[in-house]
Design a protein around this nucleic acid. Structure first.
Lengths: 351, 351
DNA sequence: TTGTATGCGTTATCAG
DNA sequence: CTGATAACGCATACAA
């Protein structure tokens, strides 16, 4: 009843051959007699032999598995990205080991250590909102670990990064609100240090500037922990609503924050867009059903996962270090509920 | 620049010791001189030594990783369950390797083979809707692989299973529709062979019977592929709407089907509950924001993942075969939007 | 207390 | 064409 798997040795013994011969037969090696080969293959099939992947890993110094670290699995954006990651990994015979940072630097680093130390061949990561110190990523990368960053990237490490055009997404969203007649547009972003926050806030500011509206930093709120808990978003929203001059619209810059805003506005009995304007990043497949109609900015999460994995496997298998700074950019999709749907998607390589 | 990790051998060489001594020092073994131990530990710390988990796995015949197979990662129910799984695994030092069947039997079996053959210590699985042949699970289990089924379980294998009280959930939902005055209640379920379909349909029928309504099998539709693609749900919905006597309400028996119904009804410009009643299983964190108010049945997915993992780790670590048939049951939560929120949760052990 | 030898399952190298 | 041997990194039974 014990779980005893069959090994090459078992086959060798049963057939009166040496393990090396059996190995060669299974590997379809060049020098092997057809009869022996047939014999071995048939017997292996019969007793349902499968090579032990761990032994293979030890020998080949590769685990054929890639690590993934995201803030939260149960978040539409990330789960869609993981879907894409798994798809490509599966096609290429790789396993996907997932772990979540829950926006905690400490937990991220523990997972990082845990996954690395040679049990993964490469890493795909979207950094935690708390993370300010990227030296461990840098060290790991310098030691030769293939890494691809996605969504929340780390500047200063010359490896692949997969992101949407966050600047443009936020710009478009802000412009949409402006065109709808909103004037005092507030923005709620994830932690200030994150690449996505910086880029999105920059797009927001640019849109305001282009419409001749003076930016006002008191209208910008950050959620230090990525809005992981509702009270954090509530504080931001309440802070905005209690301002002397109340903003007339909110731009929510992540999935989590958009959802948070929806709940809080609902609890405060504020309807969108009559009482207050709202547009936000969201990847839920239900946002388009939310009433009153809510315009959203949707990221091509699945595709980002696919692309990131393709690049990572390329890095892993070519074994060559990335010598040039490459970034793939995809445009996020602005889904306007009141007007037409604007679907643009493109790849841009920037240097 | 190559990724050369430091090994015990490196430490041994540097310190002029044997690998076994170093190993013992690191393992905090019984007989080892304090000085040597200190020396080794400090040096290991200094050069950032981490044991190679693959070598450990080979030697200990355990990988400290568990496999998870679900239909789709990008599905709220499953991603929440995976969240729970990862939480417990993380706490216990286990890795989680995920893969998706996409409701395909073939892909499920490939993943199964892939994950097993000794690279995982245990398996948590929710079977694909296509799967009718469970012999591979049975064989695997008989060979000693610890397995825990969740949500979509397999009868006839005496191992742990984690499910909600599907019968009761569907019963409550149906009763809710009946109490709202709906008479002709249709049901759309996942593949007929699935445990969840059978249990939920049974609950649905029982509620009808208890209200003196004769069950009508033409009002029950199944999605052979779990409603993975929208057209499949559309066919079911359209079929129902085109019936001579059109049903006045729909009970959607999975997340995917509920979302599908919402989209299809919307495209047909039918509003809920004025044009047609609707209640469904859903785990999205946005369903409660959908307008008009939609009542849903929400499963404790996160907790199910946690419990399944706890049980699995117990199986793995105790190494004893499950001798008694155990099933943990949790009541699903009926979230009634129009009335009060009914939150009941309990553990029931059935035999 | 420490060192030597062995094995976990596999493949590559080198003899035969 | 096939077999013996070493090695991947680690832990342990056995020797010293």
């Amino acid at each position: 009843m014990k779980f005893e798997a069959v090994t090459i040795k078992d086959i060798a013994k049963a057939l009166g051959l040496s393990t090396s011969t059996v190995s060669r037969a299974l590997r379809d090696s060049y020098e092997i007699s057809p009869e022996t080969k047939k014999l071995v293959l048939e017997y292996a099939e019969k007793i349902n032999y499968h090579p032990n992947p761990i032994a293979l890993s030890l020998r080949e110094r590769r685990s054929r598995s890639i690590g993934v670290i995201v803030a939260e699995i149960a978040n539409s954006f990330f789960s869609q990205a993981i879907d894409g990651i798994e798809s490509i990994a599966y096609k290429n015979g790789y396993n996907v080991i997932i772990s979540q940072s829950r926006e905690s630097f400490e937990r991220e680093q523990i997972n990082l250590n845990y996954l690395t130390s040679r049990s993964i061949d490469g890493l795909i990561i979207s950094v935690a909102s708390e993370t300010k110190d990227f030296s461990n990523f840098k060290d790991l990368y310098d030691k030769g670990m293939p890494i691809v960053f996605f969504d929340r990237i780390v500047a200063g490490i010359n490896t692949h990064k997969v992101i949407v055009d966050n600047y443009q997404g936020a710009y478009d969203a802000t412009r949409h609100l402006l065109e709808k007649g909103f004037k005092q547009i507030a923005a709620i972003a994830n932690n200030e240090v994150l690449s996505i926050s910086k880029e999105r806030i920059a797009g927001y500011k640019a849109a305001l500037a282009d419409h001749g509206i003076k930016e006002n930093d008191t209208l910008i709120r950050y959620c230090a922990h990525g809005g992981l808990i509702l009270p954090e978003v509530e504080e931001a929203v309440s802070g905005l609503l209690n301002m002397p001059v109340r903003p007339d619209a909110i731009l929510a810059l992540t999935d989590k924050i958009t959802t948070g805003c929806l709940y809080i506005l609902k609890s405060k009995k504020l309807t969108v867009p009559d009482d207050i304007g709202l547009i936000g990043f969201s990847n839920s497949d239900l946002t388009e059903l939310i009433g009153p109609p809510l315009s959203i900015i949707k990221q091509p999460a699945f595709e980002m996962g696919e692309i990131a994995t393709g690049l990572l496997l390329q890095l892993i298998e070519s074994k060559r270090p990335v010598t040039e700074f490459e970034t793939k950019m995809l445009a996020p999709q602005l889904v306007l509920r009141e007007s037409s749907v604007n679907t643009k998607s493109k790849h841009v390589k920037i240097s």
